[in-house]
């Protein structure tokens, strides 16, 4: 190849490169992330600890020393573990707390799902528009109404999603008192936002043809939602429901720390009584239910999905 031809080629490549828009936003984002990370690591401690290093190691030693179950520590025989554990489970109300934890998660997931279903048609961009699913909706006296409904329901989802369950639980207990309602509502409000967003995405991505058929035959938006979109995406919604139920179980274990019977309550009590052996037992029990919940949810989701 001649040098001349090569030169024109390079010039052409340089031209093509200039033509391509540069992804400035990606570059700036990368820079911002690096700077933010650097700032986070160099801006000092989050918490100035008052403990000295020796106090700390003494603490740790005491903690580890008290981790083995008390009767086992006394006798040195692990056969004493079983009666101790059974006593904690039955008389120490651990079993009841496990049941409560699961019940909290189930009730909350159901409530959030139910309310999300009510708001989803408003938040789905393909329904809450003057032209549902691309079919003209006729003359609208106030076409902006759809835009407003859409924005409001979306805002409701984002806002409720941004409130952490634990803080909601704390606030609701200060209003309602130590009532299981407070925790159920706390879980439900946060998950309402998440399920609502996921659900409206499902509705937006649902195959439009059955819904169009409903509208073409004289049905309205709600008719299309109830008769075509919901049955069509039933499985997907149930999959999301179980996915959130699984996280609800995880959160429910800690919400008890706020003072209503669930595993978290037992954990904080054991901590306050400095029975670290019991505390560890409850923590591991909690881990066990979370794993069991994960497994159950995984099995149901697998069963609902034919192929990945």
């Amino acid at each position: 190849m001649s040098a001349r031809a090569e030169e024109t080629r390079l010039a052409r490549i340089a031209y093509l490169r200039r033509q391509q828009p540069r992804p400035w936003f990606l570059y700036l984002s990368l820079l911002a992330i690096i700077l933010a990370g650097g700032w986070a690591w160099t801006a000092g401690d989050l918490y100035t600890s008052v403990l000295t290093a020796s106090q700390r190691s003494a603490n740790l030693e005491r903690f580890i020393g008290k981790l083995t179950p008390a009767p086992v520590q006394a006798s040195g025989d692990w056969s004493d573990f079983r009666p101790w554990a059974m006593e904690l489970l039955v008389e120490g109300e651990a079993l009841k707390a496990v049941g409560m934890t699961l019940a909290l998660a189930t009730a909350a997931a159901a409530l959030s799902g139910l309310f999300a279903l009510l708001f989803i048609p408003g938040a789905a961009r393909n329904l809450s528009t003057p032209r549902p699913l691309g079919i003209t909706g006729g003359r609208d006296t106030f076409p902006l109404i759809w835009d407003i409904i859409n924005k409001v329901s979306r805002l409701a989802f984002v806002f409720t999603r941004s409130l952490p369950e634990y803080i909601l639980g704390f606030l609701l207990i200060s209003i309602l008192g130590p009532d299981p309602w407070a925790l159920v509502l706390a879980l439900a409000i946060h998950n309402f936002g998440i399920l609502g967003r996921l659900g409206s995405e499902v509705v937006e991505n649902a195959p439009p043809r059955p819904a169009r058929t409903v509208i073409a035959h004289g049905g309205g938006r709600l008719g299309a939602y109830l008769a075509a979109i919901l049955p069509e995406s039933f499985n997907r919604m149930v999959v999301y429901f179980f996915y959130r139920w699984e996280t609800c179980v995880r959160e429910a274990t800690v919400l008890g720390m706020l003072g209503v019977i669930s595993l978290g309550f037992l954990i904080t009590n054991a901590k306050a009584a400095r029975s670290f052996d019991q505390m560890l037992f409850f923590v591991l029990l909690g881990a066990l239910i979370v794993l069991a919940g994960d497994l159950l949810s995984l099995l149901v989701r697998r069963w609902l999905r034919v192929e990945r």
Partner: peptide
């Protein structure tokens, strides 16, 4: 890059390089 450009020229879409 120059080699790739010449190949793209051969298949007729050289302006899609980037």
């Amino acid at each position: 890059i120059s080699k790739i450009h010449s190949l793209l020229e051969r298949v007729g879409i050289e302006d899609k390089l980037f």
